[in-house]
């Protein structure tokens, strides 16, 4: 059964069947990653271009590894800043790369909707590796994979996302995906970091983390953009840590085993304390490994549609 769409632009509107297909396919690739020889041939002869218009280390490495594990030829393209400030438009850049007979494009861009624009001007399969504050679908898929692996299901679980929801593509993709899979989703953060009318996406809003912890099964802790946000969206890092930091003391008070996720890179002792990040409930490193498997599944499923 193929995926319904030729591209992976986001989880908004993606069906439960398609999400399940990706997660189930990732299970086989996860098994491949445990083998002594970690390479399989499905994308042999295919060329994948990784177009990163915004800084990224782990997502770029994870995609690159996934592509190489599938035997694809990999073209790395890195440019910082928006297409306009660079002088060449996104359209021209993408068409130039496509002219080199590229089959798939993985794109990270600082503008929401950039991949949605891209699919109108090129023919290759497009995978969104993060577009502005909009979506980061493979991150949410790997988060869901990791929760399912750890807790055995998604349906009926309560997942809370903590941090700057307003500017987070990880939060949005998780909300869309988890809601589709039947989980209860809540968001928690200071009022300055909760976007308008987010309740209408079917999530509950909390401003005090201790109010939500007693019912939570998994906590997805977002990275605080320290340089950008201190003094604007919250007064100081100390205050943020005191009111929203995920600490062992807080988790013990909640009185239940809560699975801890973080998309990385973590700021130790800001949004998450070091002991929690390293605790037995943390699945942060499993997320990294699962990310490769999930991205292999996405690349494989999109490629096999053609």
């Amino acid at each position: 059964m193929p995926l319904k769409s030729k591209h992976l632009l986001g989880l908004d509107g993606m069906s439960r069947e398609d999400i399940t297909l990706i997660l189930d396919t990732a299970v086989s690739f996860r098994e491949v990653l445990e083998r002594p020889i970690k390479k399989v041939p499905p994308l042999q002869g295919k060329t994948v271009a990784n177009m990163f218009f915004e800084n990224s280390t782990r997502t770029r490495l994870s995609f690159e590894l996934a592509e190489r594990r599938l035997s694809a030829d990999v073209l790395a393209f890195q440019a910082t800043g928006s297409s306009v400030s660079k002088g060449e438009t996104l359209k021209d850049t993408a068409r130039n790369i496509e002219a080199m007979k590229v089959d798939m494009v993985v794109m990270r861009h600082s503008a929401a909707g950039a991949p949605h624009y891209l699919v109108r001007v090129i023919d290759a399969n497009v995978i969104n590796a993060g577009d502005g504050g909009h979506e980061h679908p493979t991150q949410a898929l790997l988060d869901m994979y990791t929760i399912r692996e750890k807790l055995g299901r998604l349906e009926g679980l309560h997942v809370c996302i903590v941090g700057d929801i307003a500017h987070s593509r990880v939060a949005r993709s998780n909300i869309y995906g988890l809601r589709t899979m039947g989980a209860r989703v809540s968001v928690c953060g200071p009022a300055t970091m909760i976007p308008r009318d987010i309740e209408r996406l079917g999530v509950d809003v909390y401003h005090h983390i201790d109010d939500v912890l007693p019912t939570v099964d998994a906590l997805n802790v977002l990275r605080i953009q320290m340089e950008r946000d201190a003094g604007r969206l919250f007064p100081t890092l100390r205050e943020y840590h005191n009111f929203y930091g995920v600490t062992r003391q807080r988790l013990e008070k909640a009185g239940r085993a809560i699975t801890i996720l973080h998309p990385g890179p973590i700021n130790r002792d800001v949004e998450i304390s070091a002991d929690v990040a390293d605790s037995e409930h943390s699945v942060i490193l499993q997320q990294v490994l699962n990310g490769v498997a999930v991205r292999m599944a996405v690349l494989y499923l999109l490629s096999s549609r053609n």
Binding site: H134, R172, R196, D197, I198, R200, L201
Partner: peptide
């Protein structure tokens, strides 16, 4: 416009 659609699309809003 800042509001539900901007929240859904992740586009920075103008309130």
């Amino acid at each position: 416009n800042e509001g539900f659609t901007a929240t859904r699309l992740g586009i920075p809003g103008m309130p």
